[in-house]
C-alpha cells in the first residue's frame, strides 16, 4: 500500500509540475459553477431546456471523469515516450495489479467530482447513497479512458485525438433519452448507458440497482480487458 501511495503522490507531482496538465484541474471546479448557476439560469431563460435538464446534469457528471481520464492518460503516454515505463517493467511488482492500483487515483477524483456535481445541482434531491452509487459508475469512465487512450496513442498529440473519440461512446448513450425507447436499447452496448438509465430510475424513484449493477460489472470487465492489453504493451 505504501508503494501505491508513493506512486499516487508521484503522479500528482507529475501533473502539477506540467503546466499544460495542471490547467485541466480547473475544469471540474468550473463544472460545479456551471451546474449550480449556469444550468438553472439557462433553464429559466430557455424553457425548452426544461425537458433536457436531466441529460445535461448527467452529461456534466461524466465530464469530470473525462478530464481526469485525459490527464492521467497523458501521464502514462509521457511515461512511455520517455521510456520510464521500461523501468516499471523490471520492478518486483505485479504489472497487472500495479496498473489497476495506478487507476485508483483518477477513479477517486472522478467519483468525488461526480458526487459534488450531484450535491450542488439544484434540480433533484438525490440521496447520498444513491449519489455515491451512481458516481462510482461515472468514476469508472476515467480508468477506462486512461487505458483506452494509453493503449491507442503513440504520443500526446495522438492521445488528444483518441480522447476526443472516446468521448463519443461515453456521451452517446444520453441520446437514448431523446429517441423512441425501442431504438434506445441500441446504446446498451456502451457501459455508460446502464449508468445513465440507473440515474433516470433514481430520479423517477424506481428500482435503479439492477442498472447500476450491470453498469458496474460491465465497466469492470472492460477495464480488466483494457488493463490486460495495456500491461502487455506498456512495459516493453
Amino acid at each position: 500500500m505504501e508503494k501505491l501511495i508513493k506512486v499516487a503522490i508521484n503522479d500528482f507531482r507529475l501533473v502539477f509540475r506540467d503546466n499544460s496538465l495542471k490547467f485541466f484541474f480547473i475544469f471540474p471546479l468550473l463544472n460545479l459553477f456551471v451546474v449550480h448557476y449556469g444550468v438553472p439560469f439557462a433553464v429559466e431563460n430557455f424553457p425548452l431546456l426544461e425537458d433536457f435538464k436531466m441529460v445535461i446534469v448527467m452529461s456534466i457528471t461524466t465530464q469530470g471523469s473525462l478530464i481526469f481520464g485525459f490527464i492521467y492518460s497523458m501521464v502514462l503516454i509521457d511515461e512511455k515516450d520517455t521510456n520510464v515505463a521500461k523501468v516499471y517493467g523490471i520492478l518486483p511488482i505485479s504489472k497487472f495489479w500495479f496498473v489497476i492500483f495506478r487507476l485508483i487515483t483518477p477513479f477517486l477524483y472522478s467519483v468525488l467530482a461526480s458526487i459534488l456535481i450531484l450535491l450542488v445541482e439544484p434540480f433533484y434531491n438525490i440521496p447520498l447513497v444513491e449519489n455515491i452509487l451512481y458516481s462510482v459508475q461515472t468514476g469508472l469512465v476515467a480508468p477506462m479512458m486512461v487505458l483506452f487512450v494509453a493503449i491507442m496513442a503513440k504520443n500526446k498529440i495522438e492521445g488528444m485525438s483518441w480522447q476526443k473519440l472516446f468521448n463519443i461512446p461515453v456521451t452517446m448513450p444520453l441520446l437514448a433519452f431523446l429517441i423512441p425507447v425501442y431504438l434506445s436499447y441500441l446504446f446498451a452496448i456502451f457501459p455508460t448507458y446502464w449508468a445513465y438509465q440507473g440515474f433516470n430510475k433514481i430520479i423517477l424513484g424506481e428500482n435503479f440497482l439492477i442498472f447500476l449493477f450491470v453498469s458496474f460489472v460491465y465497466s469492470i470487465l472492460v477495464i480488466a480487458l483494457f488493463a490486460r492489453r495495456f500491461t502487455k504493451l506498456h512495459f516493453q
Binding site: 507531482r13 507529475l14 521510456n83 520510464v84 521500461k86 523501468v87
Partner: peptide, 14 residues
C-alpha cells in the same frame, strides 16, 4: 537484478 538501460529514462519533472 539491476538494469541500466541504453538510453536515459527518468521522470523529467522530478
Amino acid at each position: 537484478i539491476g538494469v541500466s538501460f541504453e538510453l536515459p529514462n527518468h521522470y523529467l519533472k522530478l
